[in-house]
Amino acid sequence: MLERADSRRDRARRRTRVAGAALTAPLGLLVVLPVSPAVAAEAYGAPTTRCEITDPRLPELSGLVGVGDGMLAMNDGGDRVEVYALDGACTVGEVRTADVDPYDPEDLAVGADGTVWLADTGDNEQKRETVALIGLRTDGSSTLTRLTYPDGAHDAEALLLAPDGTPYLVTKEVLGASSVYRPDAPLADGATVPMTRVLGMGFTLTGTPGGPVGRAGQLLVTGGAVSADGQRIALRTYTDAYVWPLTGSDVTGALSGSPVRVPLPDSPQGEAIAFAGDERSLLVSSESLPAAVTLVPVAGDLAPAPPAAGDDGAAAAAPAEAADPSRPVGPVTAGLIAAGVATGLIWIGGRFRRRQA
């Protein structure tokens, strides 16, 4: 049995304490390997609202998967496993459950065999000894595999399921220095499987507004998706989506390349991302009720464009090939990021304290 889920009040207290701790984190110990995104000036068109989720059972939408013309969705947290099937109008149909008490589910994926995978990987206080992947099989049975990090606890909200079935977790880091982890062995029900850190990524300030924590939201990875045809990967922050081409199941190689960056519409707490039925357009949504499911339609070539001449780097990261993985963030960049993080975390700490009153 997994660790029991905390109440919303307990989770709010946790997040407030984490906010305070993050403000005192030593900047010199954080390492960033920048991604090299290009703004999707032509690759994606204007976002439109596909539908609105109004069902009171989905107040904290975190995981989303496109399935044909419909979707699968799940809440952040909760004290039981529940996956909701939505049609194209966001109306809830079938609800799939499992006799598992999760700790903090954050993301969702579907395997080639139809198994629905929940990433029970949330860890705001970074104190869990294990995280878990919960599988809902098509025959109604379920599996639970525990995972361990090689370097201590992390908070992760993004699950990438490669076409060959290998899962990858992408951590959520306050200064954008996310890590990618992969299990060392196949998933097995009841097993505890160690993971290896296979890649370090660096997300930088983009200038896109949105999210609950100000500029810090531009750095925090909150969700991930792999297209059903296995040709693309997407990660999102509170404000932007990043899309990479995928060859085979080489997720690490894909994420090491240059993505297309897609500024997303402002939303209260955007954590959900999926590929639409065409496997190229994006579906994104946020915690809240009603929650708009926004379609970001593909409009052109998804290959990243070269940076514009004279770009000063304020809205995009430095080229990946010029980055040194062992080099810490520069003092100016660190100062700018820290200022944004501090502002956002002070705000969110106050917000959760007000909720408890």
Results as ranks from 00 to 15, higher is better:
253 G>P: 08
57 R>N: 01
200 G>K: 02
2 L>I: 04
350 G>F: 13
19 A>R: 11
124 N>S: 09
150 P>K: 04
92 V>P: 07
10 D>W: 04
69 D>M: 02
131 V>S: 08
97 T>P: 03
180 V>I: 14
103 Y>Q: 09
113 D>I: 02
330 G>W: 02
145 T>L: 09
238 Y>D: 12
264 L>K: 03
149 Y>W: 12
85 A>L: 10
94 E>F: 15
177 A>H: 00
225 A>F: 15
285 S>G: 11
287 E>Q: 09
84 Y>P: 00
285 S>I: 05
58 L>D: 07
25 A>Q: 06
219 L>A: 00
278 D>I: 06
81 V>M: 02
46 A>Q: 07
253 G>E: 12
314 A>F: 13
319 P>T: 02
288 S>N: 10
127 K>A: 11
172 K>R: 14
83 V>K: 00
56 P>L: 06
32 V>N: 13
52 E>L: 15
76 D>F: 05
23 L>T: 09
103 Y>T: 15
96 R>L: 06
349 G>F: 07
326 S>H: 05
60 E>C: 04
96 R>M: 07
163 P>H: 12
312 D>S: 15
348 I>L: 14
108 L>I: 11
345 L>D: 15
143 T>A: 11
234 A>P: 02
100 V>Q: 01
26 P>I: 05
136 L>Q: 00
312 D>L: 09
176 G>N: 01
149 Y>A: 12
7 S>E: 15
309 A>K: 00
132 A>L: 06
83 V>E: 02
129 E>I: 00
123 D>Q: 04
159 L>D: 01
205 L>I: 05
103 Y>R: 10
163 P>I: 12
199 L>A: 13
